[in-house]
Design a protein around this nucleic acid. Structure first.
Lengths: 120, 120
DNA sequence: GTCTTTGTCAACCGAGAGGTTGAGTACGAG
DNA sequence: CTCGTACTCAACCTCTCGGTTGACAAAGAC
């Protein structure tokens, strides 16, 4: 089922229906039937989607009579955001440095490390 | 192949190998063979992973003799970050409001809207 | 008690993902 | 031109995913 938490969260949100459900839940808690209403799929299918979201930690389900209100756990987003920010920053930093290097390189390329066009 | 861009990006990053490749590329561009080296899978498999990343817009491949240097396109992360931030903020805002309501509710619960026990 | 509502579980199905091997392409080196 | 290197394309295989139907559990309503 994808062992690591990060894979679970990413793959949970890789489905448009599930992202839609998350968007709906951001407004407020809802029952399974309420969540299923907008889509032309069976309630069972939505129940499966909720299980995926729950396994990813994005959602929690409590018990209340025969209803199972679904609640969005927004804090799990942090896991993704941290991962994304880390590599974006790293890549942008690298880009900035490369830019500096290119700027401080008037004519003579001093032994390129690897990857280089050094066009004409 | 998942029509919408957001699904493509999320599902591209749902695989640990692909996230690893992204992490590697954040350090600097690399060829397919260099990227394949750390893993015990064939070069073809890595090439497929790169195609997925490329289709998601996370990566670009140029031509340089017979090498195909792979480059990380960090700006696509924005798509995800925006989506995530939107609903996280919304959910947190909702939580804050609920908190306010609970705080400004001394004893008497004034007509519960939905979902409520309010026993006896 | 029986009936209805709400939701889950199990089994099945078709499509796609991720892996393999094998052949083919593109390019520089000799 | 021939050879080796770097990579991709095609076919195949297995396993997972999203959907279905059908049966079941749990808890009010009557």
């Amino acid at each position: 089922m994808a062992a690591d938490p990060l894979s679970r969260v990413f793959s949970a949100l890789a489905d448009p229906t599930r992202r839609d459900i998350v968007a709906r839940l951001a407004v407020g808690d809802a029952t399974v039937n309420e969540l299923a209403a907008p889509y032309d799929v069976t309630v069972q299918a939505v129940s499966k989607h909720l299980k995926v979201l729950e396994d990813a930690g994005l959602v929690s389900r409590s018990r209340e009579a025969q209803r199972r209100p679904v609640h969005l756990e927004a804090n799990v987003f942090d896991l993704m955001t941290k991962w994304i920010e880390r590599y974006r920053r790293q890549a942008e930093e690298r880009y900035r440095r490369l830019d500096d290097v290119l700027r401080s390189m008037p004519d003579e390329p001093p032994a390129p490390t690897r990857q280089e066009g050094t066009p004409s």
